[in-house]
Design a binder for these strands. Sequence first.
DNA 1: ATACTGTATTGCGATTATTGCAATACGGTT
DNA 2: AACCGTATTGCAATAATCGCAATACAGTAT
Lengths: 298, 298
Amino acid sequence: MELEQYQHFLVLAQTLHYGQAAQNLGVSASALTRSIQKIESTLGHALFIRDKRSVRLSQAGHVFRAHALEASKGWAELKDHLAQENDSPTGDLKIFCSVTACYSVLPDLLAPFRRAYPGVQIHLQTGDAADAMSKVLDGVADLTITAVPDQLPSRCVFNSILKTPRVFIHSANDPDAALYREGQALDWSKIPMVLPERGLARERIDECFAALGIRPKIYAEVSGHEAILAMVNLGFGVGVVPALVLEKSPYHNTLSILPSPKFSKPLAPYDVGLCMLKRDMSRSPLKQFWDLVLTLGR
Amino acid sequence: MELEQYQHFLVLAQTLHYGQAAQNLGVSASALTRSIQKIESTLGHALFIRDKRSVRLSQAGHVFRAHALEASKGWAELKDHLAQENDSPTGDLKIFCSVTACYSVLPDLLAPFRRAYPGVQIHLQTGDAADAMSKVLDGVADLTITAVPDQLPSRCVFNSILKTPRVFIHSANDPDAALYREGQALDWSKIPMVLPERGLARERIDECFAALGIRPKIYAEVSGHEAILAMVNLGFGVGVVPALVLEKSPYHNTLSILPSPKFSKPLAPYDVGLCMLKRDMSRSPLKQFWDLVLTLGR
DNA sequence: ATACTGTATTGCGATTATTGCAATACGGTT
DNA sequence: AACCGTATTGCAATAATCGCAATACAGTAT
């Protein structure tokens, strides 16, 4: 008997409505049906009386409800008890992190986590954000802090931590710097740009320009926000990076922000968050990390 | 958290030995290892301290043990409570049964079951014993009462109910009846025989004769014990059937038992028992039936 | 009467998890 | 140093689970 099924039962016992209970639980109605059927089958008693129009607890259902409540309470008490033990939870935590996230959001998460769970061994690996998802899917990393992917694999869950606008930047070293500073309307099809080589960021930028019928003039394609900053700083062109990346970089007072082109469809902000496997939501110390991030977010 | 895993934990907590505990539980050591790992992972605490030479409970392990015992007790109480409810367990029970078993052992099982669990709707189907296993595997039947198969599918469990010797029989109508009655050594290679067309019984008989270097003279190949009885009763030859089948048949006083040939490797008794899917061992009302048979067997 | 709506259940294909076997890692022992 | 005993892990096979779409079925509206 799964503890999760107890929860299914308890919610259904309250709502007395499969569709609604399923929605509350975040599962499909068929999954809920089968959870209940499975309990009934192991118990040998019908827990609910369904007469096609209404659902209500049977006698055995009431008995089981008392048990399920008791069991849930026992489980909660256990966790309390363990939390108050002097020894903190143990385990390994393999984090994969883009450099961007490593500079920007990671410190704010890792410090309190370390304080709360000193027994957890943390392995931190940085790398290209494009690899983040596959690292998690392959089990090389337990969780990753990175931009929200174009489409989340079904096995993963994502929790946004912060959003920061994307800004267009240029350097005083740029031959055209004077032009940019005048604040006039710019012809974006003629401005040399430093853009990401691939990945979600590049796609979004291309889409936004395309919506205006503009084919940007690409001076360089590079990999990684930090590389963009470096190139732009050398005066090679105009780049696009998340504002936060600029702020945390050593170039933040040598580079200037340009007003964004008048996109019909605005460039979505850079959304960075936590991503891990659904499966691990119930596992330690991943659950602890996830929960901590939630509390910090509020 | 599975209730089954609680059991795994509790047994390991007692034996403090993976191999031994695994054997007690009837699972492989690796499965046990993973059960424990999973609990530890969801709790975030090591339950056992392993130092390659010994296994002992950790502090968190002791805490969890108290919880697990409590939870087990609660579960047992629940089942007690439900058992004492006035409404008996409900459900369907689809039984597939060879005719032989239907006459011989089924009544002794079904009567007490019906008395104990009147709420269970019983569906009984008889048919060729050779089909029994596939009926269960295909989900057409929940359980079957039949001879132990040559090799049990891995998804199934089997529980022997009774064994009865196989006997060689002949009829007074047989032209050679006088010969048989004299009690002299018989030349089995010359005696016409009525044997099962296929299946385990036939294979065993062939093996036993083959071990003596004898190729029996087959007069007829038929399907089903009852058919053998009928053919033998008409005087067509000598047949082999489980003793119990003979006793329960209408021919039991018109047919006579011959001394068995002196097989070097004796003909194994007919072993009839209960077979169902492992999966269903925890489901109702199959578990009830299984348990009832166990108690009757003792 | 017939079509329609809301609700629980079931069939099915695809995805995940679990198992057991064999291989491995790692102390202690001969 | 080779060998045991024991827990763990890699891997391939097996089984369970999920969500979607189809179905069943009672009440309601047209």
